[in-house]
């Protein structure tokens, strides 16, 4: 693997670390965009340029922008960042981190088991992807389309601003 992979990998890991340690959501989101861009580079290195483009356009472009707009819409001020600072004490994060690192160690151990043949990167061109998407996986594509449709309808329905109606359980506790 060339240096491109290592550099992009290091950037991805570091920026993700920054994501999970920021108190301010905006900062975290910007770091996450960096992380996504570096992952896109890795995609390119692994012979999937089309997927790298999709990663940048859809993930970094559309989804992240959606979240950023959302956060701006909620107008979360410095108070939220202060809450985050208050919540993120070592007592909270040390236990889960160790557990997750154990998980990581196990994963790496399993990945590093000798597999016989050393694989090299084989480029899969977008045409082959398109052929198989609209060939054997046409049903899955239809399902994905329906999922997106359901997502749109669900988001519209849930996100509608309506007269505030408290759920009866919540209502009772707020009294």
């Amino acid at each position: 693997m060339g240096p491109a992979f290592y550099i992009a990998g290091a950037v991805a890991v570091l920026s993700t670390l920054m994501v999970i340690t920021r108190y301010n959501i905006m900062h975290a989101l910007l770091y996450f965009i960096v992380s996504l861009l570096s992952v896109a580079v890795i995609f390119y290195v692994y012979g999937a340029p089309f997927m790298a483009a999709l990663e940048v356009i859809v993930y970094a472009g559309a989804i992240m922008v959606l979240i950023i707009f959302f956060v701006m819409m909620l107008n979360l001020g410095p108070q939220t960042a202060g809450d985050e600072a208050r919540w993120l004490t070592p007592r909270i994060w040390i236990g889960p981190s160790i557990l997750c690192l154990v998980l990581l160690a196990e994963l790496v151990y399993l990945i590093l088991q000798p597999t016989g043949q050393a694989g090299d990167v084989i480029t899969v061109d977008p045409k082959a992807v398109g052929m198989s998407l609209f060939g054997p996986y046409i049903l899955a594509v239809e399902l994905a389309g329906m999922l997106l449709m359901a997502g749109i309808v669900g988001a519209y329905h849930l996100g509608r601003q309506k007269k505030k109606i408290l759920h009866r359980f919540l209502e009772r506790t707020t009294e």
Partner: peptide, 10 residues
Amino acid sequence: VLGLISMLIR
């Protein structure tokens, strides 16, 4: 795993 840690501590 980084994502998982974030999920657990946030």
